[in-house]
Structures are given as C-alpha cells and as structure tokens.
C-alpha cells in the first residue's frame, strides 16, 4: 500500500510538473477557434443575431467597421439594426467568405487571431456573386467555461473608403 501511495504521489507530481500549455489539446483549441470565426459569419448570414451576440459572451467587445462598439448580447442587437437598415441596399442571398486566418496563443485560455473576409452580394444587374466589402479582423479570444469566445473583435474595412483627395 505504501508503495502504491508513493507511486501515486510521484504520478501526481509528474502531472503537476507539466506546464498548463502542454496539457491542453492545441489541435482541439485551433478547431474550436476556427469554428468560432466561421460562426461569426454564419450567424450573420442566417440572420441569427441572438446567436451572433452569444459569440461575445457577457462582456466581449465588438468594434464594427464604422467604429461603432457594442458589448456582449448588444453586439447582436447592433447587427440586427444594421441588417434591418440595409444601408448598402444589397440583395440576397449574401454571405461571408473568410481567408488568411492566423491564430496564436497567449496562454492556455487566451489567444489572438487575424483574418480577413469578403462580403459577397449579388450584383444587381447580373445577379452574380460579387465582393462588396472586404474586412480585416483583429481578435482577442478567451476560453470561458470551456468555450472560446471573442473577448474583443475589431473590424477594419479595407475598401470602399471615400476617394482620396487628388
């Protein structure tokens, strides 16, 4: 029995000696974070604004392309208004196309990501899918209760600025 307890103690010490970042499953975390980044567009594309707000948890901050800011569930409400107003007068169906994703970890429960997207909308004349907006995302991500969420997402528009002064 004493030998068993000694073995158990050594095993526990060994587990405790492994750094937290080595104990986690990075491949799983990368898959979950990728799914989070995809869910951002998928919820907007399906007009699931409640689901969109949940991606930010209670206090995640969303800074939209125009600099407007919302926190948590309010992010969903903000996007509900944006799509209801339809300032660009775009047709449907429209969808997000994501690319250039890079994820780095700051610790076992914190990560950063950069990525880009095109917002594809039908051309009014031809109905062909056409890129209307391009955006760059800078994300701070956090794992809360086992789930990866946006702690902060900043959207930077890379097109459709007013023409530069000549």
């Amino acid at each position: 029995m004493t030998r068993f307890l000694r073995f158990l103690a050594l095993a526990l010490l060994a587990i405790g000696a492994i750094p937290a970042h080595a104990q986690r499953n990075e491949a799983r975390d990368r898959a979950d974070i990728h799914a989070l980044l995809m869910a951002y567009g998928a919820t907007l594309d399906s007009r699931d604004f409640d689901g969109f707000g949940k991606l930010f948890g209670e206090d995640g901050v969303y800074v939209g392309g125009g600099g407007r800011e919302a926190k948590g569930a309010a992010a969903g409400e903000m996007m509900r208004q944006v799509f209801a107003n339809n300032p660009n007068g775009v047709g449907e169906p429209n969808f997000h196309l994501f690319y250039n994703e890079v994820v780095t970890f700051d610790g076992p429960d914190r990560a950063r990501a950069t990525s880009m997207s095109l917002w594809m909308v039908p051309d009014q004349a031809t109905k062909r899918p056409t890129p209307l907006l391009a955006g760059r995302y800078e994300d701070e991500l956090v794992r809360k209760n086992g789930k990866w969420l946006f702690a902060r997402r900043v959207v930077k528009s890379v097109t459709n600025r007013p023409p530069e002064a000549k």
Partner: peptide, 12 residues
C-alpha cells in the same frame, strides 16, 4: 490579388 481599380466606387 484584389484591387480597387475604380477609385470612385472602390469596387473590388
């Protein structure tokens, strides 16, 4: 390589 050749519309 995406560009915006029309500087009025900035269309991609």
């Amino acid at each position: 390589f995406m560009t915006t050749p029309d500087q009025e519309t900035r269309k991609l």
